[in-house]
Simulated assay, not measured.
Amino acid sequence: PAKAKAVPAPAAPIAAPAPMPGMPLSPAVRKLVEENRLDAAMIPATGKGGRLVKGDVLAFLENGGGQAPAPAPASREPAAREVGAREVGVRETGAREERVKMTRLRRLIAKRLKEAQNTAAMLTTFNEADMSAVMEIRTRVQDDFVKKHGVKLGFMSFFVKACVVALREIPAVNAEIDGEHIVYKNHYDIGVAVGTEQGLVVPVLRDAEAKGFAEIEAEIADLASRARSGKLTIDDLTGGTFTITNGGIYGSLLSTPILNPPQSGILGMHAITKRPVVIDDQVVVRPMMNLALSYDHRMVDGREAVTFLVRVKQCIEAPDRILLEV
């Protein structure tokens, strides 16, 4: 009988080459490799020029090349994730650390605050004010004030008016340095710091010297509302000559505010607390507020800064001084 013809053994399949060293992975491929804890160098690559494609990783997994990933340990440097705004309040329990990309507003705030520290010779002086007179006026006229003007009489209008009095008497605090020149401002555009979920913004109350208490309260309320809804314009945020910030609404007892460049002064208001004070050699309990004035020592001397803050204190403790300009 004829010998059976030998059948040649089938040729072994040609293995696809491993990805070229240094060849970048696409985002989709990198995600698959990281999620399955694979070594990209061990996966045969079929893409153009030795590039590893998504199908290569899936085929490698189907052929048993990957193992079920072990539970990942808490990462010391988690991957960044985008968020629309800076997260505040209670955070969910998770990894030991979380890397969150800064919002554009937060980056701008950080840049300006650091610019103020690097440029100005900042110093802070402190005092305290007895809030009894202002609180008594608010209690006595609040209902009539709201009925006539449609807005509540707050503390901020008293401080704005008091600062205008002090700024007129100590013009250096309302000035700014521009190169080798000093620019004295003969108008009083007061920035009022407003906290929002996205960060701190400082809209400007224009021509405060020409406005009454009701106008100031109504405009501050409008600026604060638009700040929290993100409807402020660039014009609303620029051109201030002096700033007032109130950490007291969050419970702060004392702070050293940072200047809002190129301004030369910022007043910090704080929480009102009942404290024992000596009046006419008698110890009495009064509602007291700590005041802080941060200023640019290049522009404002210590004597001027202290005099300014004392003048604000006098106007708050005796508000009739504001009306009578004494």
Rank of each mutant, 00 (worst) to 15 (best):
P1T: 11
A2L: 13
K3H: 11
A4H: 12
A4T: 14
K5G: 11
A12D: 07
P13A: 13
I14R: 14
A16D: 01
P17Q: 14
A18Y: 04
P19M: 15
P19A: 07
P21C: 06
G22D: 09
M23N: 10
L25C: 04
L25G: 05
S26V: 09
V29T: 03
L38M: 15
A40G: 09
M42E: 14
P44Y: 09
T46K: 10
L52R: 08
K54L: 10
L58M: 11
E62S: 05
E62F: 00
N63P: 00
G64A: 07
P69Q: 14
P71C: 00
A80F: 10
A80G: 06
V83F: 13
G84W: 12
R96M: 12
M102C: 12
R104P: 05
R107D: 12
L108N: 13
I109T: 03
N118K: 14
A121L: 03
M122I: 13
F126G: 05
S132M: 06
I137Y: 02
T139P: 01
H149C: 02
H149D: 13
V160Y: 08
V164K: 07
V165P: 03
A166D: 02
L167W: 11
R168P: 00
P171D: 01
I177W: 13
D178A: 12
D178Q: 12
G179A: 01
H187W: 13
A193F: 00
G195F: 00
T196N: 08
T196D: 13
V202K: 01
L205N: 03
E209D: 15
K211R: 10
D222S: 09
R228L: 07
T233A: 07
D236N: 15
T238C: 00
T243C: 03
I244C: 02
L253V: 13
L254K: 11
L254N: 08
S255W: 05
P257T: 05
P257R: 00
L259T: 03
S264P: 03
G268D: 09
A271F: 01
A271I: 00
D280P: 04
V283F: 05
R286M: 04
N290L: 11
S294A: 13
D296R: 06
H297G: 00
R311H: 08
V312W: 02
C315E: 02
P319N: 09
I322M: 10
L323W: 08
